[in-house]
Simulated assay, not measured.
Amino acid sequence: MKGQEWYQATDVAQEYDDKRFSRGGRLIDRREKEAVLDAIGPVDGKDVLEIACGTGRFTAMLAERGADVVGLDISAEMLAEARQKAKASGVGDAVEFLRGDAGRLPFEDDEFDAVIAMRFFHLADTPAAYLDELQRVSRDQVMFDTFKRYSTRSIYNWALPMGSRLYSRSEVESLIDGAGLELVEDSHDFVLPYGFYRKIPDSIASTLRSIDTTLGVGPGGDAIASVSYWSASVE
């Protein structure tokens, strides 16, 4: 898995949310949470596993909506931030956080109603093996995102600390089929890559987002998007 050491650095964990989801990055955070909720629907009473939960953005959100959530991450530093976030949100006792490897999940087959993995597969060195594990522990649904090949994401990909794996649609469909999953729904967004939003104030970011959304809903919008959200069911 790319970036394990980088993500486990204490300063990275402590500054992760501020650098990515403040300023214009709030628009990214909002859209990603919307994508998760749209994909898995009402979560009250569901058993949900979040892979690579990081600082717990989605874990806390799902617990607030009544889900029984387990968040797993390789980084003890990220998990420490996630526990603080869950406690501050009033769901500290409703979420279990575990340190572990997504390639060898410490769970029984079919243990969860849904498994989500956001900001994960762009770092995966063996995506098929990881998706097999997600499918194994889910009895109903798997939801994840990818960064898109032949998009604006590739323009600045070289500048990232560990780069990103980019996927074509056919590659993702092949991975889903190979894992014994059935694609239920997919959506695509952000013609402008994430990096544009993280560096600018809210007011400018909102204007850019309006332009971005207009381009995205037009003819060929999906083809020029840089991010894809995938929802699949267990066959």
Rank of each mutant, 00 (worst) to 15 (best):
G3R: 06
Q4N: 03
Q4E: 09
E5S: 10
E5G: 00
E5N: 07
Y7F: 15
Q8Y: 05
A9E: 10
T10Q: 08
V12Y: 09
Q14M: 12
E15S: 14
Y16E: 06
D17N: 13
F21N: 02
F21A: 13
R23L: 11
R26P: 04
D29P: 01
R30C: 12
R30A: 15
R31L: 05
R31W: 11
E32W: 05
K33G: 02
A35N: 12
V36P: 02
V36F: 00
L37F: 04
D38V: 02
I40W: 08
P42C: 01
K46T: 07
K46N: 00
D47A: 14
V48L: 10
E50V: 06
I51M: 09
G54K: 01
G56I: 14
G56F: 06
G56M: 10
G56Y: 06
G56V: 14
F58V: 15
M61Q: 01
M61H: 04
L62P: 09
L62D: 07
R65G: 15
A67N: 09
D68M: 03
D68Y: 11
V70R: 07
V70L: 05
V70H: 00
L72V: 02
S75K: 05
E77H: 06
A82T: 03
R83F: 13
A86P: 07
K87D: 15
K87S: 10
A88Q: 14
D93R: 04
D93Q: 07
E96W: 02
F97L: 13
L98F: 08
L98R: 14
E108V: 14
E108D: 12
F112P: 07
F112V: 03
F112H: 03
A114C: 01
M118N: 01
M118P: 03
R119S: 00
F121I: 03
A124N: 06
T126E: 13
P127A: 07
A128R: 11
A128S: 09
A129W: 08
Y130K: 11
D132I: 12
E133G: 07
Q135A: 06
R136T: 04
R139E: 05
R139A: 05
M143H: 15
M143L: 15
K148A: 14
T152P: 02
T152L: 14
S154Q: 09
S154C: 02
W158P: 04
W158Q: 06
L160F: 01
P161G: 05
M162I: 06
G163E: 10
G163I: 08
R165T: 12
S168E: 09
E171M: 14
E171I: 04
V172S: 00
E173R: 13
A179I: 15
L181W: 10
L181S: 14
E182M: 03
L183Q: 11
L183H: 09
V184W: 00
E185I: 06
D186H: 03
S187I: 02
S187V: 01
H188P: 04
D189F: 08
D189A: 09
P193N: 14
P193H: 09
Y197F: 14
K199S: 15
I200F: 10
I200W: 14
P201E: 07
P201A: 00
S203L: 06
I204M: 03
T207E: 09
R209P: 02
R209F: 13
R209I: 04
R209E: 00
D212H: 08
D212L: 05
T213K: 13
L215Y: 13
V217T: 13
A223E: 08
I224N: 01
A225T: 12
Y229N: 08
W230I: 10
W230A: 09
S231Y: 11
S233E: 02
E235A: 03
E235Q: 07
